[in-house]
C-alpha cells in the first residue's frame, strides 16, 4: 500500500532543488573521473586503500556462505566429476608423454636457430577482495599494491589465463580491470590461423572481436592468445576460445571464470612501453606460417614435411 505521508511530501518539496544540484554534481564527477585526472586517481586510490578492510569484512561472510552452497551443489555431482577427471587424467598422460619428446625437439631447434632465451616473468600474487559484480563496471580489488611493486598497466593472470590489467594502484591495494569490462581492449591472435585482432569486453560473458581481417576465417573452439602488440601485455597468454553465436557472429569466451577468482597474479617485470610517435612505425601483422621448407624436412611451424620426389 502506498502511504505518502504529508511530512514526507513536505520534506521532498524542500529538498528537490538540492537533489537536482547533487545530480548535476554527480554528472560533473563522472566526466571528471572519465578524464582520468591524476588528482582524482589519487583520491580514488587513497579511498579504496582506506575502505579495503571494510569491503573485505562485508564481503567475507557472503563469500563463505556462497562457498558452502557451491560445495553442497557439487557434492551431488561428485561421482560424475570423478569419472570425468579419470578420463581427463588418462588423456593428459598421453599428451604429457608426447609433449616431453616435442619439448626436447623444440630445444634442439632453438639451439640450431640461435633463438634468444625468453625472460622469465616475475609474478606477485594477491587475494581478490571484492566480487566482480556490476552492471556498468567489472573490476576486482586485490590486496597487493605499490609497496609490492605493482604499477598501472601490468597484466593480471590466473592459472587459466589472462584476467585483465591493473588500472589503479594504491600503497596496499590495486584495482584490476577485467577482460569482460566494456573499457577493456586486448590485442590477440587466433592460434590456429595466426590472424591478429583485438578483443573488447561487453560487460557480459563474451568478448567482441574487433579489427579482424575480412579474409580471416575463425574456427569454433580455436584458442585465442595475447599477441603482445603494443608492448603492453606479454604474448602467448591464454585469453579464451572462439564461439559462434546464433546469428553466425564470432565471439571469444574467456577461459577464466571471473566469478571464481580468489587469487590473481600480477606480472611485475613487464615494463610498459611509452608511446613514441616519432619512432613508431606501426605494428607488423602476424604472418601465417608458409608451407615452404625452412629446414630440411621441417616447415616454419616445426612440423615434419615429407618431400615429394618432384621437388
Amino acid at each position: 500500500m502506498v502511504s505518502g505521508k504529508p511530512s514526507n511530501i513536505k520534506s521532498f518539496k524542500n529538498s528537490k532543488k538540492f537533489n537536482s544540484i547533487l545530480i548535476l554534481l554527480c554528472l560533473i564527477l563522472v566526466f571528471l573521473g572519465k578524464l582520468d585526472l591524476i588528482a582524482i586517481r589519487n583520491i580514488k586510490a587513497f579511498l579504496s586503500d582506506f575502505l579495503a578492510p571494510v569491503t573485505f569484512a562485508l564481503n567475507k561472510p557472503v563469500e563463505e556462505i556462497a562457498g558452502v552452497f557451491e560445495d553442497v551443489k557439487s557434492a551431488g555431482a561428485l561421482r560424475q566429476e570423478n569419472i570425468r577427471l579419470k578420463t581427463e587424467v588418462r588423456k593428459l598422460k598421453v599428451i604429457n608423454s608426447k609433449a616431453s619428446s616435442q619439448e626436447l625437439e623444440l630445444l634442439e631447434l632453438r639451439q640450431l636457430l640461435k633463438v634468444l632465451p625468453e625472460r622469465r616473468n616475475k609474478i606477485i600474487t594477491g587475494r581478490a577482495i571484492t566480487a566482480p559484480g556490476g552492471v556498468f563496471a567489472n573490476t576486482v580489488l586485490i590486496n597487493v599494491g605499490e609497496n609490492n611493486g605493482i604499477k598501472v598497466g601490468q597484466p593480471a593472470i590466473s592459472s587459466l589465463g589472462l584476467v585483465g590489467y591493473v588500472v589503479n594502484v594504491s600503497l596496499k591495494t590495486s584495482r584490476v580491470l577485467l577482460l569482460i569490462d566494456i573499457n577493456s581492449m586486448i590485442p590477440i591472435y587466433l592460434t590456429s590461423s595466426n590472424w591478429p585482432a583485438v578483443v573488447k569486453g561487453q560487460n557480459g560473458k563474451l568478448l567482441k572481436i574487433k579489427f579482424l581481417s575480412s579474409k580471416a576465417e575463425p574456427i569454433e573452439g580455436e584458442f585465442v592468445q595475447t599477441s603482445g602488440h603494443g608492448g603492453r601485455l606479454p604474448s602467448g597468454i591464454n585469453v579464451g576460445k572462439i564461439v559462434k553465436s546464433f546469428s553466425g557472429k564470432f565471439f571469444v569466451k574467456p577461459t577464466v571464470d571471473f566469478h571464481r577468482l580468489t587469487y590473481i597474479s600480477i606480472i611485475t617485470n613487464k615494463d610498459i612501453l611509452p608511446f613514441k610517435s616519432k619512432k613508431f612505425n606501426g605494428f607488423a601483422p602476424l604472418q601465417k606460417p608458409e608451407t615452404s621448407i625452412n629446414l630440411k624436412g621441417l616447415n616454419l611451424s616445426g612440423k615434419r614435411v615429407i618431400e615429394s620426389p618432384e621437388d
Binding site: 573521473g33 579504496s48 571484492t130 588500472v167
Partner: peptide
C-alpha cells in the same frame, strides 16, 4: 563510496540513487 569500492565511474551510483 560504493563507486570507489567497486571501481565504477565515480558518481554513477549516486545519480541512480538520487
Amino acid at each position: 563510496l560504493h563507486d570507489i569500492m567497486n571501481g565504477n565511474n565515480i558518481g554513477t551510483t549516486s545519480i541512480f540513487l538520487l
